Simulated assay, not measured.
Amino acid sequence: MAEGLMKKLHGQDIYVQSAGVYNDLEIDGFSIAVCQELGVELSRHKSRSFDEMQEWGDDLSGFDLIVALSPASQRRALELTRFFHLDVEYWPILDPTGLGTQRAEKLDSYRQARDQILQRMETRFGGAGE
């Protein structure tokens, strides 16, 4: 979700690569739905792990910043970057998975998470076109 939202805000001005601790999770349908509300297409987005990023040629030392959205991803990022000069920030974002029992409640939780990510991005990197 974060990669798509960042590209929506800044296009090609900032290079963004989304990665996680694991790659075995498909992009959640609720994430796809709430991002589509903002014109962000995630349905073709592929989940990848930090290890896959490195295997595919993305050298972590070439990045300036890693933003972790979970404690597990923060721990993994800190492990991988202990020899590099780049920052790791942890953004405590609501984890919407498992919240709500009705579709509308679930969508509301995902919207909250989406909006928290957007707010953090705008605070950290500025709004669109800045």
Results as ranks from 00 to 15, higher is better:
106 K>P: 01
65 L>K: 11
100 G>Q: 03
71 P>H: 09
14 I>V: 03
11 G>N: 08
104 A>Q: 14
98 G>E: 13
65 L>V: 04
26 E>Y: 04
101 T>E: 12
101 T>R: 14
91 W>F: 07
97 T>N: 01
25 L>Y: 12
40 V>N: 09
26 E>N: 13
55 E>Q: 14
49 S>Y: 02
22 Y>K: 15
35 C>E: 03
113 A>M: 12
33 A>Q: 13
23 N>F: 07
11 G>S: 07
102 Q>S: 15
75 R>S: 09
19 A>K: 09
59 D>H: 08
72 A>I: 03
110 Y>D: 02
34 V>Y: 06
15 Y>Q: 14
76 R>L: 14
81 T>Q: 14
118 L>K: 10
109 S>Q: 08
23 N>P: 09
84 F>T: 04
71 P>F: 06
87 D>A: 15
74 Q>D: 10
112 Q>D: 12
66 I>V: 13
42 L>S: 01
59 D>E: 15
107 L>C: 02
32 I>F: 02
104 A>K: 06
85 H>Q: 05
32 I>N: 03
25 L>W: 15
98 G>C: 09
48 R>Y: 06
21 V>T: 14
65 L>R: 11
117 I>H: 03
63 F>S: 06
42 L>I: 05
94 L>F: 08
99 L>D: 01
45 H>D: 05
83 F>K: 12
58 D>K: 12
84 F>Q: 06
94 L>I: 11
13 D>A: 10
28 D>F: 01
19 A>L: 14
81 T>K: 14
